[in-house]
Nucleic acid binder design. Structure first.
Lengths: 145, 145
DNA sequence: ATTCTTGCAAAAGATTTGCAAACAA
DNA sequence: TTGTTTGCAAATCTTTTGCAAGAAT
């Protein structure tokens, strides 16, 4: 049952990648599966360390290359933060995030309703709006002890 | 009149810096004045290039050090973006920004009313909210030709 | 067989740091 | 005078790139 589901997921992944001429490799699958299984949005370094036990010869450069490949295939999205390393999210639909100011971890912010409010916020004249970014900053449960 | 105002501004700056044991130097003043006079929020590099004609021997490291000093004195705030260099803002009150996806420039987003809506957005359990970050992303007038 | 991918090391861009000389108070 | 700051160069951190060897289809 669980095994069958995994096989189906892998097939779906193969197809998404194939459309962009991207191959399915063990390194790629490992990155994808790790991202699918964590509740927060890890950095490239975290992914690297998590995947290394299974694939001891993998390099950090490969992690970065694979993340870019997965982004190209619209399977993963990249969240950027100036202070620190970028983070990677298995979701690609439009949504917002919560970020911990202590540990830097990032989570999805679910159930944001009424964001129609956002659309009525007006930028300067001549500015063409393409997207909104909303983040709640604070301290996560773990960091508060 | 304008000269008198500038002297008063400089005195106010001196006092703000003095409270933190920070001295008033020509380099510091140049960074502060450049930041006060631009409508967008420049990077350290932009400030460096803008200030260099007046102070040809200034170095980029000094710009960074001075920006940190001004931030410590709560006279400047830092806006961070993962893709690119950080940007510096002469405003230190809580407000939001517009950012151009083409050129990377950042402006203040004025008159954000109704942000009470933000306060009702609920993060995950156990998360202590400290701040909100809202950005409108798009293309600025100049980049649209 | 051909194209794509890996792993390594080196490069790149932004920012920080160590230190001796110069400056502000 | 005393502590702070400057300018330079070197170091740091994250991310990207070049390339020869290896893997996927």
């Amino acid at each position: 049952m669980a095994a069958k589901k995994k096989i189906n997921e892998r097939e779906a992944l193969r197809q998404a990648l194939h459309q962009q001429g991207v191959q399915l490799t063990s390194q790629r699958v490992a990155v994808f599966e790790y991202l699918s299984g964590v509740e927060h949005h890890p950095t490239a370094e975290e992914i690297y360390l998590a995947v290394k036990p299974k694939l001891p010869r993998i390099s950090l450069a490969t992690i970065y290359k694979n993340l870019e490949a997965l982004i190209k295939c619209e399977v993963v999205s990249k969240l950027t933060y100036g202070d620190a390393a970028a983070r990677y999210d298995i979701r690609t639909d439009h949504h917002y995030h919560t970020r911990c100011l202590s540990c830097g971890k990032v989570w999805d912010l679910n159930a944001v309703e009424g964001s129609a409010w956002l659309k009525q916020v007006k930028p300067q004249a001549g500015f063409e709006v393409k997207d909104y970014r909303l983040e709640i900053l604070g301290h996560c449960r773990d960091c508060r002890r």
